[in-house]
Design a protein around this nucleic acid. Structure first.
Lengths: 211, 211
DNA sequence: TCCTAACCATGACCTCAGTCATCATTATTT
DNA sequence: AAATAATGATGACTGAGGTCATGGTTAGGA
């Protein structure tokens, strides 16, 4: 018998989910909360196996709460619920070690399966959410990579700096004079509001310009 | 009607999957291949919407093939199949932009759903594979971060360099003289076999020392 | 007790990085 | 025709980065 904490601010929705969960006899909702703060108090009072929690809530939202819970109770499983596909939120909570992710529109079977699966070490992910979140995780900054306001030449040079090359090496590589490389770098630093080649290299790596 | 290329070295398995797919009337297997190389030739001959491909194959494996396909035909959807949960392989192919991932043990409905879903912009992922791959994607380098052969002080300074700070700023931050900071950096560069602070910054970012 | 590793510091020295002024060419836009 | 932006180049100047030699303190292991 798994002990579940259900966290959701809208009481009607909460009742609905509770009923859905308790139709599975191996699952029991032993505590409920209406916001993240309250959820943490409940955690202190009950031995909880799995938390099913909304992302958007008053006082303290689900992401905050999940992060704190994972720190204080690393073994608790956390399943996040949301009504809309908010990829920003999803990304953040995934990084905080949340165990799974579901849309509220999920059917009863899916919800139960998700809870059982995450208790089992699995990581249930809603397809729609996954489709939105995965590309970000994998490509990360690629979206911005295009709207970096650099000319092709500047981009090429920025890339070289991101690979740790000296001005001399860059000049040889691109068949330019050292002075020209320096000038380009000065322009790049101004455009990107950076101070020196070190910061540029960091920028390049973080924006996937290097390698 | 979606046109599918089926790539799988074991003919029997291939026949089975083909039959499963063609039970869905909106899907048609218009070409087949037994390895990655052959698959690419087939791509050149047919207008393919979706590739369903095994990971492990002779001559050229699925990862290689997927990477090349995504470069030459960025709009083609690629679904990878595998018999075992190989997270290393999965990770690599996900990074190469593969559209989805399924275990060969999947049932017919799941396979069809996965194909339709990826044609639709979704990203179908097998639960078992996801559970194995996601933690790696999220935590990434954390494992190696520890075995960097630097003293605590050196690590602190490396971190600062990774945040783009100058020697002066680092000296102020850590209450040291500029000369001391320089000395430490010289030691760090030697240990890590790097040339200058720019390469150190890149190293720091890639090994998650910064931020 | 001695040795070593980690820590902090200074000064001398040289190189590379970065800024700036200035100029030239080409292609595109107005 | 004129203006603009991207490209390439030079020389001069300044400062930050990096190396080296040297020396001091502290803590812990042999």
């Amino acid at each position: 018998m798994k002990r579940i904490l259900l966290v959701e601010d809208q009481v009607i929705v909460r009742q609905g989910i509770k009923m859905m969960i308790e139709q599975e006899k191996s699952l029991q909702v032993v505590a409920e909360a209406g916001d993240g703060m309250e959820a943490i108090s409940k955690m202190e009072l009950h031995a909880i196996d799995c938390v099913v929690m909304d992302i958007r809530m008053p006082v303290m939202n689900g992401i905050e709460a999940a992060r704190i819970m994972k720190q204080r109770w690393p073994h608790v499983k956390i399943l996040m619920l949301t009504t809309f596909n908010d990829d920003e939120y999803a990304l953040q909570s995934l990084k905080d070690g949340v165990n799974g992710f579901l849309l509220k529109t999920a059917e009863r079977e899916e919800l139960i399966k998700a809870i059982l699966s995450c208790m089992d070490g699995g990581m249930p992910l809603d397809r729609e959410v996954t489709a939105k979140v995965m590309p970000r995780l994998l490509l990360q900054k690629k979206k911005e990579a295009t709207d970096i306001p650099l000319t092709p030449r500047e981009l090429a040079i920025a890339r070289c700096v991101g690979n740790g090359m000296t001005n001399k090496e860059i000049a040889d590589e691109l068949h330019l004079s050292i002075g020209t490389v320096k000038n380009h770098i000065t322009a790049i630093l101004q455009k990107l509001e950076l101070r020196d080649r070190t910061q540029l290299a960091i920028f390049a790596v973080k924006n996937d310009l290097s390698e």
